[in-house]
């Protein structure tokens, strides 16, 4: 077995075997703290890492940002990939538009047309954007960007100021467009063994389409446009 650590800290309570908490979950084999490994997480440690935000606003910090402020931040950090108006660049995601396109042949899934919750926008920008420097924006900048992208999608007015009170109130156009219960299995096949169909027709073939990178030799860098 490998070991992650060369040095071994002597931890008190290695074989404590003492129940530290009096309210064990029903049906659980061992009470909380049975092993006693690790350290208690302090409030400060939790606060620093607990960055998730829920649709009901849980997790949103103090601070605020306006649409106008968001435009400044957006032009600095976002437009090079997402386009000046959220129209997307190359294969980088489109952020705005696509209204009413979800049932069309070529749907455009954007923040405005698809995303069900505004909180997700704040959460995602804060944790993962800008792409090349994640978690580098201030909370106010994230609020401002959220306001700006919502405004690009005509979901909020241009005087909108995003903060922990206003953001959970925003209703996204596609909020009711989702089913959160998995309906599958919905497609059923039968295990027929003989004479299962009368004829077979090939409708499409990948031959000659020249979309397949090489599967031998060095990596195929291909066309990246």
């Amino acid at each position: 077995m490998f070991s992650f650590l060369k040095s071994s800290r002597a931890l008190p309570g290695i074989c404590l075997g003492v129940a530290l908490v009096s309210a064990p979950m029903t049906g659980v084999a061992e009470p909380a703290g049975h092993y006693g490994y690790g350290a208690s997480a302090t409030e400060e440690q939790i606060a620093a890492w607990d960055i998730d935000v829920r649709p009901d606003g849980m997790g949103l910090p103090e601070g605020s940002g306006s649409v106008d402020e968001g435009m400044q931040v957006y032009e600095t950090y976002c437009s090079s990939c997402h386009g000046a108006f959220g129209e997307g660049m190359g294969r980088y995601p489109k952020l705005a538009g696509g209204d009413g396109s979800l049932a069309e042949d070529r749907p455009e899934k954007t923040v405005g047309s698809y995303w069900p919750y505004a909180s997700t926008l704040w959460d995602y920008i804060h944790r993962a954007m800008p792409f090349f420097a994640p978690q580098s924006l201030t909370d106010d900048q994230v609020y401002a960007l959220t306001a700006y992208v919502l405004n690009l999608n005509y979901i909020v007015e241009s005087d909108f100021v995003a903060n922990k009170e206003t953001l959970p109130e925003v209703v996204m156009p596609n909020q009711d467009g989702f089913t959160w219960e998995d309906p599958r299995p919905v497609v059923s096949n039968e295990r027929c063994m003989k004479d299962c169909k009368e004829s077979v027709t090939v409708s499409d073939s990948a031959a000659g389409k020249n979309l397949t990178p090489s599967t031998t030799g060095p990596l195929d860098e291909g066309i990246t446009e």
Partner: peptide, 28 residues
């Protein structure tokens, strides 16, 4: 006590149906 509705379970990894609605939490 509730799901977080993160980007990876709303914007992505949801299945768009022909009528324009989508199925989420299709984990299996």
């Amino acid at each position: 006590d509730k799901p977080w509705m993160q980007r990876e379970e709303t914007s992505k990894y949801t299945d768009l149906m022909p009528d324009g609605t989508a199925h989420g939490f299709t984990w299996v």
